[in-house]
């Protein structure tokens, strides 16, 4: 069914390239998160998919049909805008049924379908309300219901949850994911929040400066970042410059033998060592460092260690809190099998 495939997709604004040669194939029914820092071109890429921007180069095809030149209103996609773009002059039900009434669907049918969609997003009986009478979370659901009204081939959402407070956002992430699984609609969600991406996605596309940095399943991207940018952007990573040799690396003049479980993505020579905070151990051995701060977050304890101008973060469960004090000198070790060596 819906296979989405982008080929060399590029968008320039004047001399500035916002989306730079994006080529991806996305299988039918996937939940895709476009993840990247603000300004990296996520919205632009989504708007290219929707037909709201014309690509400077490249092709978009859905189910093998080239839609690159198809105007937005003929693509048959659903979209949820960052501002939601709900029509203030229409009721909730009229908003949800808008894509149907535009296509000349009879009034009764529109009403029936609106009720159906509203119950899908748990807003039964709210059809008669005006948009300004709804809470933020309810508006969110209306926008989602409206985007799904025509059973779109492709469902696009631009930072749909960013306006919600933290609790509601986490709740809606789960709800959106469950809804998508139930309907099986191929979905692309833009987000700059890596937790959100890891929670919802089948496939995460990490972008930076208009280019795709990595495509993969959430845990793949988290455990096995393709480069230093992805390692730094997804979760917290400790990044240290190192020298890659035969089966070993040299960090601050100290040799560390690599384990078969460690991942090496770099060529021999200058490289970057990436280790997650939970994979750092403090001991008497290892790289010498000085405790600069201990942050007790309740559910976990962060220990910051200063090593030759680099700040290294170690993460502990509350029960495993090490007996260290600020100013104390310790050794930093990396758990074998968790180390990733990336190109410099």
């Amino acid at each position: 069914m819906t296979e989405l495939s982008l080929h060399g997709l590029t968008k320039r604004f004047g001399s500035f390239t916002a989306v730079d040669g994006v080529s991806i194939d996305i299988p039918d029914g996937s939940f895709v998160c476009l993840l990247g820092p603000s300004g990296c071109g996520k919205t632009t890429l989504l708007r290219l998919l929707a037909g709201l921007e014309e690509p400077s180069a490249g092709r978009i095809s859905v189910d093998g049909e080239d839609v690159t030149g198809t105007p937005a209103h003929l693509r048959g996609f659903g979209m949820v805008f960052q501002s939601l773009a709900l029509f203030p002059h229409l009721t909730v039900a009229e908003n949800v049924a808008y894509p149907l009434s535009i296509r000349g669907t009879p009034r009764d049918e529109c009403r029936r379908r609106a009720d159906e969609l509203l119950s899908l997003v748990q807003l039964e009986g709210m059809g008669g309300r005006r948009i300004h009478q709804l809470s933020g979370g309810q508006r969110q659901r209306v926008a989602i219901a409206r985007g799904l009204a025509i059973e779109p081939r492709l469902f696009l959402l631009d930072e749909p949850l960013s306006a919600l407070d933290a609790n509601l956002r986490e709740h809606m992430q789960v709800e959106l994911r469950q809804l998508q699984q139930r309907l099986g609609v191929t979905t692309v969600v833009v987000t700059h929040d890596q937790k959100e991406a890891l929670t919802m996605a089948d496939i995460v596309i990490v972008m930076d400066k208009g280019r795709v940095q990595q495509v993969g399943a959430p845990m793949e991207v988290y455990r096995d970042p393709a480069n230093a940018f992805v390692a730094g952007f997804i979760g917290t990573s400790n990044l240290l410059p190192c020298e890659l040799g035969e089966g070993e690396i040299t960090v601050s003049g100290r040799r560390i033998a690599l384990d078969p479980g460690d991942r090496v993505k770099a060529r021999p020579g200058e490289a970057v060592l990436s280790v997650r905070p939970e994979d750092i151990r403090l001991s008497a051995d290892g790289l010498p460092g000085k405790i600069s701060f201990v942050r007790d977050l309740g559910e976990s304890v962060q220990v910051l260690v200063e090593h030759e101008g680099h700040e290294i973060t170690a993460l502990y469960a509350p029960g495993a809190r090490p007996e260290v004090a600020v100013g104390e000198t310790v050794g930093v070790e990396f758990v074998p099998g968790t180390r990733v060596v990336l190109p410099a």
């Binding site: 604004f13 037909g51 709201l52 921007e53 014309e54 105007p71 937005a72």
Partner: peptide
């Protein structure tokens, strides 16, 4: 202005 694919 951007080159909108179509204008209102």
């Amino acid at each position: 202005m951007s080159a909108r694919a179509d204008r209102p």
